[in-house]
Design a binder for these strands. Structure first.
Length: 283
DNA sequence: GTCCAGGCTCTTT
DNA sequence: AAAGAGCATGGA
């Protein structure tokens, strides 16, 4: 078991704000997730974040988990800076005060957000679970149920299109298959995306079948650690329209506005806005 | 039955 | 560049 002393961190908010899809609540304040090859139990005691790997080969490396939970970033400074730039973010920052933007596996984010397009979050979770069960490797058994790793690019590239369709992926089946094949062909260049700038990496991501501007920004934000990404989905569109009167604004005008409001921290602003809007669903 | 979801691709203006 | 049709699936 490992522990981190933390502030500005609330695992409930982190796991329910739509950036991660593989955490399940198993008790009042306890969650279990699969992160890379580790089945991990997670809970909070006062100002302490506790983590315990459940599988033998799982990792309890402090550095790895600090990076995953974005522990070393100063969210106090971050929020103050955002508030100075855009005072009307106050309600969203307060509401999602424990949100942190996780640093997740790149390939997992790529496939996950391809599946997310034009889809509901509960169904996205379900599809990912089926994909892991079918193409991942078993990591840990608890009685009847088993936790699986996220499939590798290789295993998904070798999948059968009909079988993917039978799992309920819909028209996204071909996107997943073709993108997985493309990643295999890129080999080491795929992980090399981390060394590229936001714009360079985005260009590469947009070349994958099933990845458009919104999905690319999610991958850049959650998988490549680029806070300059500002994914605009239906919820964010709603909140931008309501808060800033942008319902009839052209895409370029919106982009410019976002840049002026939030600058290089717009990815964090987006996550607070998304969570606030979706949790306070009021059309 | 209709609407909608962390949209994208392809076609047409 | 921008706007529109079509798209699998399932829950509300």
């Amino acid at each position: 078991m490992i522990q981190f002393k933390v502030n500005h961190l609330n695992i409930k908010q982190i796991f329910e704000c739509g950036q991660a899809f593989r955490w399940e609540q198993i008790g009042p304040d306890t969650w279990i997730g699969v992160v890379e090859k580790t089945v991990i139990r997670c809970w909070q005691e006062a100002d302490t974040l506790c983590l315990e790997a459940l599988n033998e080969s799982g990792s309890e490396d402090m550095g790895f988990w600090a990076h995953y939970f974005d522990i070393d970033r100063n969210y106090d400074d971050l929020k103050q800076t955002l508030l100075l730039r855009s005072p009307d973010l106050a309600d969203a920052l307060e509401f999602g005060s424990g949100i942190r933007v996780l640093n997740q596996d790149l390939f997992e984010m790529l496939i996950t957000f391809i599946l997310s397009s034009n889809n509901h979050i509960p169904r996205i979770k379900q599809l990912i679970m089926r994909l892991c069960q079918r193409y991942g490797e078993p990591l840990h058994r608890v009685n009847e149920n088993c936790y699986y790793s996220f499939p590798t690019a290789k295993s998904l590239a070798a999948a059968d299109l009909e079988e993917l369709r039978s799992l309920g992926l819909g028209y996204r089946d071909a996107y997943v298959l073709e993108t997985s094949k493309a990643v295999c062909e890129m080999a080491l260049d795929f992980e090399g995306l981390k060394k590229l700038s936001y714009n360079e990496a985005k260009k590469v991501l947009l070349s994958f079948n099933g990845v458009g501007p919104k999905v690319a920004d999610c991958i850049l934000l959650f998988g490549l650690g680029k806070p300059e990404a500002f994914p605009i989905d239906t919820w964010v569109k709603k909140t931008l329209a309501r808060r800033y009167n942008l319902q009839n604004a052209a895409p370029k005008a919106i982009e410019l506005f976002i840049e002026q409001q939030f600058g290089d921290l717009k990815g964090f602003a987006q996550q607070f806005l998304f969570y606030f809007e979706r949790e306070n669903e009021r059309s």
